[in-house]
Write a protein that binds this DNA or RNA. Sequence first.
DNA 1: GCTACTGTACCGAACGTTCGGTAAAATTGT
DNA 2: ACAATTTTACCGAACGTTCGGTACAGTAGC
Lengths: 188, 188
Amino acid sequence: MSKQATSKQTHVSELLDLFRRLGYDGATLAKISQTTGLGKASLYHHFPGGKDEMVEAVLVALEHGSEQITAEMLQVQGDAPARLRKMCDRLSKVYDNGQKPCLLAALLSGSAKDAFRDRVEKLLQLWIRAIATVLTTAGMDETLACQRGEDGVMMIQGALILAQGLQDPAPFQRVMQQIPETLCRPLQ
Amino acid sequence: MSKQATSKQTHVSELLDLFRRLGYDGATLAKISQTTGLGKASLYHHFPGGKDEMVEAVLVALEHGSEQITAEMLQVQGDAPARLRKMCDRLSKVYDNGQKPCLLAALLSGSAKDAFRDRVEKLLQLWIRAIATVLTTAGMDETLACQRGEDGVMMIQGALILAQGLQDPAPFQRVMQQIPETLCRPLQ
DNA sequence: GCTACTGTACCGAACGTTCGGTAAAATTGT
DNA sequence: ACAATTTTACCGAACGTTCGGTACAGTAGC
């Protein structure tokens, strides 16, 4: 079954961890080589495009994972809060309960290429629209639902920064618990 | 009045702009030299400790500015929403209506030293406590006020990331308008 | 024998930092 | 008042190191 102890997918998830923790500039080839256990030559065999192609591969994997989670969320039987709860559960694991930062935020600083910016933008909009779809399906006004989509992504991103900055995952965990209800609350 | 066109404070604010836009690793000495107009050697005259001392100086300036804004907020005559509105007005200028990222978030990625992490943590807690103080003064429960302090910082940080990621300041501006009311809303 | 993969050695460029030195302002001695 | 001296501000060039990336000779598995 497992001919290789370290498949390409394993390497991609190792790269994800590196890039989101250190950013594009901080993740040097030396560190990448060290954490993957691959020499430079091996890295350039798997990713001929170099560092950029590694980020590219990580982003593709992230797009795939995002589409899967959002699709799962929409397939959940139940009301809007139940669906959002499913999303938050999945994302809590992705971010290790707030202990791991978000790649998208990490790629916004430094020498990250403009091509990445486009992918980041697309990914953020994917999540915004997914949340908005859940809310409009539950009968919420279209405009408000879009705002709440933005609010959801915003809260998660902000909670991650707070958790990193305070070196305490508690605020993240609290926010992730409150999000399903907060986003569904009607306009007061 | 202005004997020097470029004072040390000017250089510090230029450094702030560079570090928050490019992060610690992305802000190379070459770029720093270019944007300040000072040669590399001159930079080491003003900041003998090198890049780290530059970040240190920027953080000190940021602490000073934060204490000033939070103090202003507490001196505003009026209810809690009015005070928070003052805070949001000042912060909107600091972040150029969402077009400029936050230094604290930028320093969380990359090779930023642990000494910076402590200062970042202190600064985040300063803001959380300031918001909480406004709310408790207005009669809100202590525990909830602290949570709302976290929520406030979190929303601002998240809104900044969203504005950067979507390359659109609109979500940031909307959130900054809503924050004064959102944070004061009683538990439902 | 052929493809997939890897270790080693190497490259030019850029990194943060230091060196040696210049020009002017401020301070001091008389 | 003025020359001597120190301090301050600045710079170009170079330091050693690390960067991302390449060339090539292998080795393992089919």
